[in-house]
Design a protein around this nucleic acid. Sequence first.
RNA 1: GCGGCGAUCGCAUAGCCUGGCCAUUGCGUCGGAUUGCUAAUCCGAUGGGUCUUCCCACGGGGGUUCGAAUCCCCCUCGCCGCGCCA
Length: 427
Amino acid sequence: MLSMDLFRNEADKIRADHDKRGISHERIDQVIDLDEQWRGALKEMEEGRRERNQAARGIADAKKSGDKEEADRIMAQVKDLGERIAALDEKANSLLEERDHIRMRIPNLLHDAVPKGDDESGNTQHSLHGDKPEFEFEPRTHNELIEMNKWVDLERAAKIAGSRFFFLKGDLARLELALQTYAVDFLVSRGYTFVQPPVMMNRQAYEGVTDLSDFETVMYGITPDPLYMIATSEHPLTSMYMDEVIEPSLLPIKMVGVSPCFRREVGAHGLSDRGIWRVHQFTKIEQIVISHPDDSWDHHEDLLQNCVDLWDNLGLHYEVVNICTGDMGTVAARKYDLEAWLPGANAFKEIVSCSNCTDYQANRLRMRYRTAEGNAAVHTLNSTAVATSRALVAIMEQNQLEDGRVTVPDCLVPLMGGKTHLEPCQW
RNA sequence: GCGGCGAUCGCAUAGCCUGGCCAUUGCGUCGGAUUGCUAAUCCGAUGGGUCUUCCCACGGGGGUUCGAAUCCCCCUCGCCGCGCCA
């Protein structure tokens, strides 16, 4: 959510941003109009309260000096003031609610370097990494590999949970655990603190970190409790300091979180989504930074560099993409994706998303730091380190051998008990 | 889950029983003054708002009242005890 200061003093900045995104100014004007109405109603109500407070003091004085008649006279005089105040209060509140209802739907201001584009086809390549693997045989898709090696049981998972759930078995399950350990160790060595978050959150905190439409299409709700399963550890880790004033000496707060991620994936279809590429539950190792506003763009580059180094160490071929206006979403001001080369699909596909959300989440979460001039919103950043299910797909497809076995990336071998290849599961 | 107790400004606290000035004090932080010593001492500021002779704010919501931090009800969270439990 954008701060009200922007609407009151620099509305043209928001308008220019909407022009770049190609959306109308209607909502901006509504927010400004409702804000003016709210301020008027508030002023009127405060005037009423001032009168009442004054009268209340008069009653106290009269009673103290024993002048019961005077006290009764004033009480009668101001009796209906309370009702008037209540009515004005209600009016002001509904104006404020309406203003912020619309304001919540206005997207973050974009960084200048965000390219213009209507959809993902407008994204631009930022850099290319690793070598494209060459095969002397027809490379298999990950679907074929998990089936022939019995590493994943989709049918039985569907039986007990539903489609897009999976059992992970044998060496591939072990590789998944090695990836978690590797990514956490890697980021701990770069100064990040390992944090395991709750995997359910209440609505109020959740509204602080996500696009409202996600409640319909992404998150699972819990019945009968008013909770939501997290779609990523970004959500609990970013909202951790909700409603707090953070001591500036604590900034930047750098965390590496690991959690299962739950996604409804409403509306997702397609042959390429078979297997474990797009699933309802997966594990993700996530980087989070809560930073001083002046430093956030440096941290954004650091997050990307961490990803690049980590994925280089895994020995994979991938590209970094600069996300364009039409593919950006509501919350981020700038976003890089890493897309891994999938030989089976003959395409680059998304494995990492690295965002600077500037003060957008912090404004919603009322997450501030102390300054000499008062409190100001912090900046929040998040980036995937490894989404294990997608990393497994990339490793399987790029490191596959003709017999269907898969070479373990060197850096993971020690975490696999010295095992250099994934062997088929017996059942 | 049951019973008891609690929640006040960054932290810690007073006020609540018995409703009515401006929500107390300490620490921390920031600013200033001063002193020859790694610091001490003194002064000031330090919840939010449309930064203001004004309004709001005492976990959240409702009620009683001319008036609620204070009385009543509901909820949330925490602590202690009991129960259950990986």
